[in-house]
Computed example of a mutant assay.
Amino acid sequence: MTLEKCWDHCASFGDQRYAGLQRGEICYCGSALNNYDVYGATEEAVCEYACTGNNEQKCGGLMSNSVYDLGGGPFDRCHPVIDPADFFNDCKTDWCAYEGPEQLCEDIESYAEACQLQGIPIMNWRASLTGFGCAMECTSHSHYEQCPPGNQPTCANPDAANEPCLEFCHEGCVCDNGYIFEGDACVLKSNCGCVDDDGNYHVQSDAVISETCDESCVCEGPENRPATRGWNCQPYACDGDTVCDYRNNMRGCY
C-alpha cells in the first residue's frame, strides 16, 4: 500500500472525497469528513506506521487514520512547492503551436515528474484526462501505477526488489500478480528462462555452443529443469568433416 494507491482507489468511486489509511496497509474511503471524525482528531505522531509499499510514507497508526482530502485535484499537494505557472504557459504555447492538445499529455507529464522528483505524492492525473489519450499503454498482463516499486523483479534478476533503488516515485507499468518482467513483456514466472554461469540471461529453449565448440548448453523448460536453474550443458564436438566457426550469427560446426 502507498498513499497514491489509496488515493486512486478512493477517487475511482467518483463520490468519495476522503481517503484514510491505517496500520500501514488498510485503505478506507468516505464521502464526508465526519466519516473519520467519530472519535476526534489525534496527534500526527500517532500515525507512525510506514506504508507497506513505500516506507518513506506514513499510512496511519494502530487504531488511527491518516486522512486525506482528495477534492483539490491530483497536484493539490505539489502546487505550494512547485509553481505550475511556467508549465502552464508552456502548455498554452504548445497548444497554439500544434493547434490542439497533441503536447498536452507530455506537458502535464513534465510537471508530474517534477513533483515526484521532490518526493511529493500525486494522484493519478492520467485518469482525469481520458478524452485526451494520456493513458499510459502497458503490455499484456501488466497495469499502470502512479508510484510503482522502484526495482521490479525480472526473470534475469528475481531479487531486484530487495536492492537499493531511487527514493522518489516514477510512474510506470507493473506486472500483474503471478507475472514477472522478461525484457519489456510480462510472463508467468514458470516461463522464465535461465541465467548461465557468466550471469547472462537466456530465454527458454535458447541453445549456445561454446567458443571452441566443446560444450553445448540449452535453457530447459520448467518440466525438465534440474536444481541448476535449467541451464544444462553437455560435452560437444565437431566431427572430422566440419570445423568450429561462427556463421549467420551462430556458433557451430560447419
Rank of each mutant, 00 (worst) to 15 (best):
C51Q: 10
T52N: 10
G53A: 05
Q57M: 08
Q57C: 03
Q57P: 00
L62P: 02
S64P: 01
S66T: 13
V67L: 09
Y68D: 00
G73A: 11
P74W: 13
P74C: 11
A85W: 12
F88Q: 15
T93G: 12
W95F: 15
C96M: 15
C96L: 15
P101I: 00
E102S: 14
C105R: 09
D107M: 01
E109N: 15
S110T: 15
Y111P: 08
Y111K: 11
A114H: 06
Q116M: 15
I120A: 01
I120H: 00
M123W: 09
R126N: 07
S128R: 11
S128G: 08
S128F: 10
T130V: 12
M136S: 10
M136Y: 02
S140L: 12
S142T: 04
Y144G: 14
E145A: 12
Q146W: 05
P148L: 03
P149W: 10
G150S: 06
G150N: 03
P153L: 10
P153D: 02
T154K: 04
C155Y: 07
N162D: 15
P164R: 06
C165M: 01
C165W: 04
L166T: 15
L166W: 06
L166K: 11
E167P: 04
E171L: 06
E171K: 08
E171C: 08
G172F: 11
V174M: 12
D176T: 00
D176Y: 00
F181K: 03
E182W: 05
G183M: 07
D184V: 10
A185D: 14
A185N: 14
V187R: 11
L188S: 15
C192E: 06
V195P: 10
G199L: 04
G199M: 02
G199C: 08
